[in-house]
Design a protein around this nucleic acid. Structure first.
Lengths: 328, 328
DNA sequence: CTGAAAGCGCTTACAG
DNA sequence: CTGAAAGCGCTTACAG
């Protein structure tokens, strides 16, 4: 491999000078600069980032830890991160926990050892242990997906969005609104969205019925079976369902159709996430768009600010958009 | 930051010895080993990968270059790559060209400078320039998505899949089969899939009609408008449409429904890709599953083999699966 | 405007 | 079983 030393030798200069032209730092006379550039061109020399990083303590790579890449939200967020970062000359070192929270800590350490300049975590839970590790490591850090105590977080307003979409149903005259949620250890999606739903009911003096409160996994199939369970358990059926993800809503939609129920005539239905899917099922699903690319870009920006200015916000809340379509 | 030297000092040994326990290489007496391990634990020491890579010329990271993360196929492939790589202790350095082919070359160089151990490219075209750069750089390399001359490639059998799905339609008695394709500079998706369609028609002595050959972009909207163009241009309408992606098929589906045409009664329709979407539109779309996660995993395995054994296959063809559903 | 030299944090052949 | 030393390929304060 051709090294800087080799370039220096060929150009009859010291490697310090080669370094200067490469980094545009310090003075270098014009002919020397040209001579060096020419030789670099001819030899196809590419500087070693490892050596550079070892000296400068800066790698221009950002670590990203995510639970799973193959969900639409995750890939949209990562896409947003990657585009924003690329603009500023940073690359992404990607680590995938495959939903194993223990790996989060392992990967934080790994990324530290790879000397990334900062880390963005797409969080699904708010692990205490993880938090401590992050603080111990003193590495610039931004969480998204979940708000993490004492760590800059860019998050969606899950409470408000769930409340608003439930209110939409109430305004349409629904009084019996079932809910398909997920485990509350996922604080934002499980707890906050449920809290929003409950708040909407309570503010309208509607009772929150336990039998109408379903808990599902993150799959379409689980949406189906949870809807089924809710309907089979009740004599008086709900006239609307709020599901915390589009996939759950679509699973529920399958069930309702199978039962010969009209949507939204017999039962109205809402999802969350504005997935591609939501636009092409029929009826088109009413949902909320959390602007995932934008969320990712904002997380990246936040990290970049920390890196450049040392300052940091505690928390940034991203807007959402209600997508009112045909399912309500 | 605590370094190996510091650990050595605290343990009253040389850094060579610390290095030996860290890497489980060479002999270290048991008490020394324990003493060192304890100090590493207490200090939270994390070795610098840059220093290590600088010495060993090995970084345990693989560069991935992709055109866009936010397509289902891409994120599934990357997920497959990442899972397979993680098993072997490798991480992914992700670069995203955002569909700008010029960036492919730039990123190959960048990844080289980051001293990745190898590169996986999700290719959308077969750029000559890029090929040359890769060969010049002598870096372990695997292409997927497109077959690249003289470079190990793991690809789907696009020709055969397109031919088979077209044959399905022919077997059902269709004689007037339209086609929605994409630009042929995308050799695999644009050229090969079209060739498969054409081959099926010709082997059955069916004419290939120019007016039924549509060319679209990779969007649902484009599927819609291309279907529209084909139908409006013809007096005798086709009774079936082969689209080269699910999104195009779904766009076409929208158009057909709008025209009051029954699917598959009036017009049968097929897509390709087995996207999530394809299962939940109605009617459910007949398509072909190219096993993207598996394709990604195979690409990773191929690269790992090159890295470990120096050997390499020229080309690996991934199986596909026909998903026969309700749209035909 | 340019160079010599030190040093970033590791690993590894060599010597003992 | 362990250490001293060289070296990986850069950058940067210092000197001229």
């Amino acid at each position: 491999m051709v090294t800087m030393k080799e370039i220096a030798r060929l150009a009859n200069v010291s490697s310090a000078t080669v370094s200067r032209v490469l980094n545009n730092s310090g003075y270098v006379s014009d002919d020397v600069r040209k001579r060096i550039l020419k030789i670099i061109e001819e030899t196809g020399y590419i500087p070693s980032e490892h050596a550079k990083a070892l000296r400068t303590k800066q790698s221009n790579v950002i670590g990203v830890i995510l639970p799973k890449l193959s969900t639409e939200t995750a890939s949209r967020i990562v896409n947003g991160i990657s585009e924003e970062l690329a603009k500023h000359g940073y690359q992404i070192l990607l680590t995938n926990t495959n939903l194993d929270p223990k790996k989060e800590i392992e990967y934080v350490k790994l990324l530290k050892s790879k000397q990334v300049d900062g880390i963005i975590l797409l969080a699904t839970n708010r692990g205490e242990e993880l938090l401590e590790e992050i603080k111990k490591l003193r590495i610039p850090f931004v969480a998204t997906g979940q708000e993490m105590e004492g760590v800059p977080s860019v998050i969606n307003n899950n409470f408000q969005a769930a409340k608003e979409i439930t209110n939409l149903l109430i305004e349409k005259g629904h009084r019996s609104i079932a809910f398909i949620g997920v485990d509350e250890t996922d604080y934002e999606v499980g707890y906050k969205r449920k809290a929003g739903y409950v708040a909407a009911l309570e503010e309208n003096q509607l009772p929150v019925a336990n039998k109408w409160l379903g808990k599902a996994e993150f799959t379409i199939e689980s949406g189906y079976s949870t809807a089924k369970k809710i309907f089979e358990a009740s004599i008086e059926k709900p006239t609307a369902i709020v599901a915390v993800t589009d996939r759950l809503a679509i699973g529920a939609m399958e069930y309702l159709k199978e039962q010969g129920l009209e949507i939204p005539g017999d039962v109205a239905l809402t999802g969350m996430g504005a997935s591609d899917l939501s636009r092409y099922v029929s009826p088109k699903l009413t949902t909320v768009d959390f602007l995932s690319e934008y969320t990712g870009a904002e997380a990246a920006k936040t990290l970049l600010e920390i890196l450049q200015e040392g300052t940091s916000i505690e928390k940034k809340q991203i807007d959402y958009r209600l997508m009112i379509r045909d399912s309500i």
